[in-house]
Nucleic acid binder design. Sequence first.
RNA 1: CGAGUAGGUCAGGUGGUCGCCGGCGUCCAAAAGACGCGGGAGGAAAGUCCGAGCUCCGCAGGGCGUGGUGCUGGUUAACGGCCAGUCGGGGUGACCCGAAGGAAAGUGCCACAGAAAGCAAACCGCCAGCGCGCUCGAAAGGGCGCGUCGGUAAGGGUGAAAGGGUGCGGUAAGAGCGCACCGGGGGGCGGGUGACCGUCCUCGUCAAGGUAAACCCCACCUGGAGCAAGACCGUUUCGGGGCGCUGCAAAAGCAGCCCAGGUGCCCACCUGGUCGCCUCGGGUCAGGUCGCUGAAGGUCCGUGGCAACACGGAAAGUAGAUGAAUGACCAUCCCCCACGUUCGGGUGACCGGCGUGGGAGACAGAACUCGGCUUACGACCUGCUCGGAGA
RNA 2: CGGGGCGUAGCGCAGCCUGGUAGCGCACAUGCUUCGGGAGCAUGUUGUCGGAGGUUCAAAUCCUCUCGCCCCGA
Length: 126
Amino acid sequence: METSGEAFPKRFRLRKRREYLQAQRVGRRLTSPHFIVYARPNGSRRPRLGITVSRKVGKAHVRNRLKRLVREVFRRARQEFPSGMDFVVVAKSEIAPPDLLQTRDELLGLVRRFDAARPAPRRDNR
RNA sequence: CGAGUAGGUCAGGUGGUCGCCGGCGUCCAAAAGACGCGGGAGGAAAGUCCGAGCUCCGCAGGGCGUGGUGCUGGUUAACGGCCAGUCGGGGUGACCCGAAGGAAAGUGCCACAGAAAGCAAACCGCCAGCGCGCUCGAAAGGGCGCGUCGGUAAGGGUGAAAGGGUGCGGUAAGAGCGCACCGGGGGGCGGGUGACCGUCCUCGUCAAGGUAAACCCCACCUGGAGCAAGACCGUUUCGGGGCGCUGCAAAAGCAGCCCAGGUGCCCACCUGGUCGCCUCGGGUCAGGUCGCUGAAGGUCCGUGGCAACACGGAAAGUAGAUGAAUGACCAUCCCCCACGUUCGGGUGACCGGCGUGGGAGACAGAACUCGGCUUACGACCUGCUCGGAGA
RNA sequence: CGGGGCGUAGCGCAGCCUGGUAGCGCACAUGCUUCGGGAGCAUGUUGUCGGAGGUUCAAAUCCUCUCGCCCCGA
């Protein structure tokens, strides 16, 4: 039932606050000029995406546009994202919002670094 | 052509590819999923400044209080909105702006300055009388200074503001003291539903400041919260009440209560699980479903009305998400700029066409719904006004 | 989405209701004290009162609009 191509239905997204908090607490973190990305294994066979854009980034239509850009990158290049991982993309409040190409380059750059570092180190205990 | 003013319209279009949200249908036992059909942001969706619907709580009725509104008449489900008018102010004008009731119901305040800031008074002045001194004069009398007692509100000075304004007359000096004009008060008549307007008469005792976006008075409106309202269902936990059973106990009362397995039976113990039954209440899982999209709605036509709007009819038709959809890319058309042009018009500057390259398309994203207000913002169209030029 | 609060000196706050002078603490500067520093004492500096408009003679204060920040509600 692996949806081929570039679809992006709900099961590829994070839907619960708890999932976001878990990813941000125990996941690995990498940053680029416009984004912070958290990643952690989710125990399934597909990658999932969650996006956080706070009100500091801009007004509603600016935030909507940013989320659409990030979704578009994920949708177009889902093969580049390692499966079995949850990703949470947090937008930083930069003065100039990025365009699609910039978003794509930054996010895929970060994802390749995750990929190179796999398997992600379990940092539990304490 | 330039400057301005009022009103209106649109909110980039078309095609293709890849996606998203929810609806209906088909396949499928069902779920998941697949396929098909049709739908999917705004004029401000924004700020949340008003008003309603709707929901829960409160409530016999009325009053007080609180808050709001404040020229008049209309309009509406309602409004602080809108329409039409009145008055005042601004602008050469088109036109625009106005929280625009009451200060002779009461209270408060008016800093500094100033004599005095609200019961009217009088600092410097001005003027008359009286007294004293000096002086001029033959005398009558005059001049100057000081004092005193009066008359004044012209002038000076202070202030945001000092008891109508300007002018002439008048006077010892002055003053609505008299007069003219302007302003103001009262009354009559006429017009208007009314705010108010017009006109005539009369008042100089014209009895007197401002502030009500100070308290207040008057008139009218006004219960509180909000769809995260609220309703239903589940999940799990805590507590109260009742019932039943068991044990202890004389009783009051206290404690416990289910199922399965270890283990053939009983007690105890251990492990696991939804831990007697009924009922009430609070919390947990930002649990699920409903509320949730049908318009006091928009368009067109007709009738009434200056208009806001009302009434009647017709056709079309409805975004409903919940870490939250309505998007991305490509091509092309529209707009601007630059360059080129064996193209067209023109004497010419230049204008138009075509081609190439580049750039721009504002403000901004539904979250229960609707009527307004306010704020943000791109382009175009129309009427009108003022100025300039030409015929 | 809905409801509420706050913007005053470099920092934390008062003053606003009841309009005329913006004040307190810390900090800062200068002097005294000390061999020097700290502490102490004395003196002093510092303000678009978030922004725009209005009412008033006069606005941080009253009214309207606007910007920013914070808190609460299942």
